[in-house]
Design a protein around this nucleic acid. Sequence first.
DNA 1: ATCATTTGATATGACGTTTCAATGCCACGG
DNA 2: CCGTGGCATTGAAACGTCATATCAAATGAT
Lengths: 345, 345
Amino acid sequence: MSQPSRNGRAPSVKDVAKAAGVSLGTVSNVLNRPAVVSTITRERVERAMADLGFVRNESARQLRAGTSRALAYVMLDGGNPFFHDVAEGIETAAEAADLSLFVCNSNGRPEREAKHIDRLIQQRVQGILITPADPDAAHLEEIARRGIPFVMVDRFSSSGGHCSVAVDDVLGGRIAVEHLIDRGHQRVAFVGGPASIGQVRERLQGARAVWAEFGLPEEDLIHVPTEALTVNEGRSAGERLAGLPSRRRPTAAFCANDLLALGLLQHAVTAGLRVPDDLAIVGFDDIDFAAAAAVPLTSVRQPRQELGRTAARLVLDEATNPEHIHEQATFVPALVARASTVRRS
Amino acid sequence: MSQPSRNGRAPSVKDVAKAAGVSLGTVSNVLNRPAVVSTITRERVERAMADLGFVRNESARQLRAGTSRALAYVMLDGGNPFFHDVAEGIETAAEAADLSLFVCNSNGRPEREAKHIDRLIQQRVQGILITPADPDAAHLEEIARRGIPFVMVDRFSSSGGHCSVAVDDVLGGRIAVEHLIDRGHQRVAFVGGPASIGQVRERLQGARAVWAEFGLPEEDLIHVPTEALTVNEGRSAGERLAGLPSRRRPTAAFCANDLLALGLLQHAVTAGLRVPDDLAIVGFDDIDFAAAAAVPLTSVRQPRQELGRTAARLVLDEATNPEHIHEQATFVPALVARASTVRRS
DNA sequence: ATCATTTGATATGACGTTTCAATGCCACGG
DNA sequence: CCGTGGCATTGAAACGTCATATCAAATGAT
């Protein structure tokens, strides 16, 4: 067991060496190559370490090694459980590689993002995973220029100068709307915005494509723009939908993410609409709260954890494999049909 | 602007010194005490730093300083947004003190918790905030014994050997049930478990106390135990409630947290019960998803961000103030009444 | 018994930053 | 002309760990 907190300074290898009556190098050997040191001295050193409560000093180790044993993930929106699931996937992979994971949250603010990145570079992390607010921001280029392994998560890179991992959002939009058409809907809202977000654009694009393929009139796919992808915005979109004249009012809505869908659902229930009979709802991401909603939400599932695991795998490859080539990993989204579109039998 | 990634090694103060034609100490002065160096050389050094793309090496800095510039929060359940709000409060305070924050997630598993703590000690973080799975675990004592500033979040310490921050859970239980009694309920369920969790015990205790004070028969406050504080468990509790004979069936439920309440709500809606008419529901924590539910949930609010901010304040005090005395900060919870108990007028 | 080989332990220096005592420089007053 | 003091800069040492080269002792082969 370890001693009470001593004089204030944590014990170092030097202290252990003195206590065990061996040289400093031997202590280091016990730590890093136990095989090379005899059983008898090893035990003596180990006892000394336990007595003193010795713990490796990671900064010193890093300084010596030149790099830290950590990855970092800068997520876009800490309030959206989607990103936590991604983070968990990353952590799983990091754990397996015996690396720590720093989780940061930019909350969509580029300046916070830049600040985090700055800190992470100072920490000399082995690699940075990020879901950026703006995939073309200058500070992202900076990371690559410094030679720090770098993967974009849930966004595609325009430049191709690095790896990225995401689902096919156009396809996601297609399957969501195809499902609604299948269920017989002829007037559908697309709820989502702002258009500056790539995902929103692509999901809408997929929706429009399949709508056109079925030969449905363009004006019956109604875009209800939002300021952000939040529950509040979903609720307010609901109000706007309710304000439409009944012959223009859609019978179903496809929301750009689950938070919007939850907000819309809340509005619908409050307004006394039956879901799915009066209004069917499809979300995107399939976060746990989608399945947990009062009316379980149909949603387009992204393989969240796998997204994270793959991203971690790519960044580790870039960090260790000299022949690494950048890769744009694309996953296929899947529709999970629940009560918000399918009447309970 | 900075150079392309160069030979592979990041430039050090030494490189900057050489490039600027000054001594290494001067570069350090520019970084740490810009006032003592003359304008002319300072500018020269700054230019050199920019040219080379110099970034401080944090490990070296830490090694020299003996301590890192970071706090850490080990949270109990990454899937529960409550803890993220706490983490945000901590981060706000950390930011203000110019410290980084490591966010870890034990997911309720003591061995993961211990592993994280181990890593954090190796990193020589300035302080550790933690919502532990078991407040009496040995590895927590270990932290204090090492002299690392340490605050327990959302749990009270039995020993009193450190600071802690939490709301008065007994009071929380009281106000929840008092609200239900006010609304005329005479048979109420307490949904929550396992009893190993202190919060659950105390919230139940508060519920029972106020129940007794109103002279209501003990057997009409029905404890529906759960295995965990999750949405799934809430749903299954709903099934058990529905299975009760109607004369024993409660007209309201107080859930030990909001996730349970959401699960219970889902079950109720699916089963065709009207909320609050057939079943009123009160949650605990007041996470954002409570207000966002299809039937907005009445909940006992904890000042989540403030909990975090205060915890950070305490840990910083312990880290910097030699006369620090441990403090058990208690916050007062407040009932937020919403549609799950109060019929819309 | 002698020399080659293995095994175990040591001593040294480097990683990048910061601090602190020491140095050189210059202007000023005596 | 010399001493004093202030200012800007320098050089060296230290933080804790780890790897490399070195050294000593013990083992085995002849």
